[in-house]
Each structure stands twice: as structure tokens, then as C-alpha cells.
């Protein structure tokens, strides 16, 4: 899947949208996006434009609302190369299990919900 030169506006078309993994399992909402680094100081003519490197989620949502920004090490990322499709949702080409940012879901699954009888069965 490529993109065919499609144009989109980040706030309008990506931020706060739902991200689904390759099995359509919801992963997160897009809390922010990360761009490749820019040169310091004035840009010489012909400076290549930055590209989107990652979708970002987690603590950055709070700082988007209240200001400030979390340290780069605390950003939870999904690499842009794992994005397969851009529509009213963003589809990934990988499984949510492979993503670090789902650790809270896994923790709740393992320590709470998975321990209650019937939790791993289909509803009847």
C-alpha cells in the first residue's frame, strides 16, 4: 500500500483518530505525531522537509491538554512504517501485542481480568 500522493492535514485527519491493528483490534487513539529532526538555525535553500516518523500516544495527551511536554524517552511510539492505511481510522500492519504502548492493557489482562473465571470465553 502506498499513498498515491494523497494530501492530508494532521490535526484534521490524524490526531485523535482511532488506531486499529492488523486484526482490527483497537490499539489507541493518536495522541500526537513525531516528525524527523530539523536543522538548527536558518534552513539553507533546498532543506528537505521533515517526515512523520512515529504516531505517539500516552503521557503526551496530558501535555497536549495542559501544556509542557514529556521527555522524549517517555513517548510511546508506533513507527510510521507500521501504518498501512489512513481513513476514518488508521490501520496498522502489525499486531497490537508487538507494541510497547499496550502494556497497561496486557497488565490488566494478566493480573485482573484474566484471573476472573469466564474471562477468556466468548459471551453466551
Amino acid at each position: 500500500m502506498t499513498g498515491g500522493g494523497k494530501t492530508f492535514d494532521a490535526v484534521l485527519h490524524i490526531l485523535d483518530r482511532q488506531v486499529l491493528d492488523v486484526d482490527k483490534l483497537p490499539v489507541t487513539a493518536v495522541d500526537d505525531i513525531e516528525l524527523s529532526d530539523l536543522p538548527e538555525g536558518p534552513f539553507p535553500d533546498g532543506t528537505p522537509a521533515p517526515v512523520i516518523t512515529n504516531l505517539v500516544a500516552g503521557a503526551v495527551l496530558a501535555t497536549r491538554m495542559f501544556g509542557g511536554r514529556p521527555p522524549s524517552s517517555r513517548l510511546k511510539r508506533i513507527a510510521w512504517r507500521h501504518v498501512a492505511e489512513l481513513g476514518t481510522v488508521l490501520r496498522l500492519n502489525i499486531h497490537g501485542e508487538d507494541l510497547d504502548l499496550l502494556w497497561t492493557e496486557r497488565w490488566v489482562h494478566r493480573h485482573i481480568i484474566g484471573r476472573i473465571p469466564g474471562g477468556s470465553h466468548d459471551p453466551q
Binding site: P26, A29, A57, I113, G114, S120, H121, P123
Partner: peptide, 13 residues
């Protein structure tokens, strides 16, 4: 709101 997995059509886990 947070984009978590939800729904009764899924198993609770």
C-alpha cells in the same frame, strides 16, 4: 476516548 479495545463481541480478556 482513549482508543482502548472494547465491546461485548470480544472476550473480556
Amino acid at each position: 476516548y482513549f482508543g482502548w479495545s472494547w465491546g461485548k463481541f470480544r472476550r473480556p480478556v
